[in-house]
Write a protein that binds this DNA or RNA. Structure first.
Lengths: 228, 228
DNA sequence: GGCTGTCTTTGCGCTGGCGCAAGTTCGGGC
DNA sequence: GCCCGAACTTGCGCCAGCGCAAAGACAGCC
């Protein structure tokens, strides 16, 4: 309950409203690699992640995969469920053991109507999400690969970064492929780019693991500043 | 009032609620080329377009412009105003004479709390917006220029298409530059691409004006099908 | 009608980054 | 400890699309 009361979407609700929200929820756990929802399935449930990490990805009609974003605890996914029985546009898959709260679309609709604050918070959350996608779309259209990858890493660090002795560890199993699919390039190019940064001491990388050693240097790359 | 009651965000409100919503609104008109909101200004107003067309664009720190989308009557812009005094992330400029309803962020917050249906509708609207941006981001990451331009045109046709004798006219002053900034390419490449399609009889174009003569052929390009 | 500025076209050279193939390293299961 | 498959690296060839320059076409204004 304490955890739930701190989630953005339930900010400003009193204890009884929170209790009601929780009473309507079911708990859904997933192991690493297990999917919460699959692209194309009819959307009937809406989720809020409590712990773990979830990866949202889309597969193109040609079979190519694209990683839309990673979901951190406190964030929502499957919102499309509240607007009728459209199919989910993405697949949501746990990349490490995860726990989420789930509501049926109808139940969540009723909660919003009874507690308008949830609708207000939800709009704020989605507006923020729209802003993030706008930024990424702008990047995709105007920036070269190196800058996009730098921005992608910085975004992940902000979302899932953990301070460790050497710098900021991106606390996610993150393959070169994932990074390529997030930034619209190929795993080859990502590999070469990371290798270049590693040589310059900006990052340190291993299998499915990246640590930012000099975040400010990466920011310089992302902003296309002359060598710092 | 009739027009307002048909807007997605006010669906399901009764007459008295609609009257209340309208009473809180002010009318804002703009001439072609005039800006409703400017990127970077503190966001204090939220708009719903009644008539005309509005272009949302962003300027990168390097001064490069990007066109995020066009707003059609019934759609919202400036939503960021309801979440505190953040700066607007985009500039909203009328491309033809426009009329919009405007609310202050606080007033709209109060309306949502009094009429939760608005919050629900607003979430639906934003969820749809997120979906659109996800699609575009996927396209940006996986498709070649020609397909992206085809998809861009089709999206515009859906949003602002008008049936005319020869086909579907995109009813917007739309320069090559605009199209390039929407699809993440250059006006040169757009010009060449359109010229190619015109030669094949798929479209017909003039200054700031494009008409789809064979929409299905454009769909074939967008989906990368073999020649139809 | 002529002028001006904006929009558009077209040619040409160049390169970032893709695509593939082959090889290497690593982690986990038995 | 060994094996297997997944993840990663590296070299090489190639081309889609960018960048620029210069010229052409059109709309609106005086």
């Amino acid at each position: 309950m304490a955890a739930v009361s701190r989630m953005g979407i339930f900010l400003g609700l009193d204890a009884s409203a929170l209790a009601e929200v929780l009473a309507a929820a079911t708990l859904a756990t997933a192991q690493a690699g297990e999917a919460y929802v699959c692209q194309g399935d009819p959307a009937h449930r809406f989720y809020l992640l409590v712990s773990g990490r979830v990866r949202l990805s889309q597969v193109t009609p040609e079979g190519q995969q694209v990683v839309m974003r990673f979901i951190a605890p406190g964030e929502e996914f499957g919102i499309v469920a509240i607007l009728g029985r459209l199919p989910y546009p993405v697949t949501a898959e746990a990349v490490e053991p995860a726990v989420a709260l789930a509501w049926s679309g109808e139940a969540f609709n009723r909660l919003i109507l009874r507690h308008p604050q949830i609708g207000l918070n939800g709009m704020a959350m989605l507006a923020e999400r729209v802003r993030e996608f706008q930024d990424r779309l702008r990047e995709a259209g105007t920036q070269r690969v190196e800058r996009r990858v730098a921005n992608g890493l910085l975004r992940l660090a902000r979302q899932a970064g953990r301070s460790v002795a050497e710098g900021v560890l991106i606390d996610l199993p993150l393959s070169r492929q994932d990074l390529a699919e997030m930034t619209g390039t190929t795993l080859f190019t990502v590999s070469r780019t990371l290798a270049g940064w590693e040589e310059r001491g900006i990052i340190s990388s291993a299998r499915k693991r990246v640590t930012l050693l000099q975040p400010h240097a990466l920011v310089a790359v992302a902003e296309d500043l002359p060598e710092g």
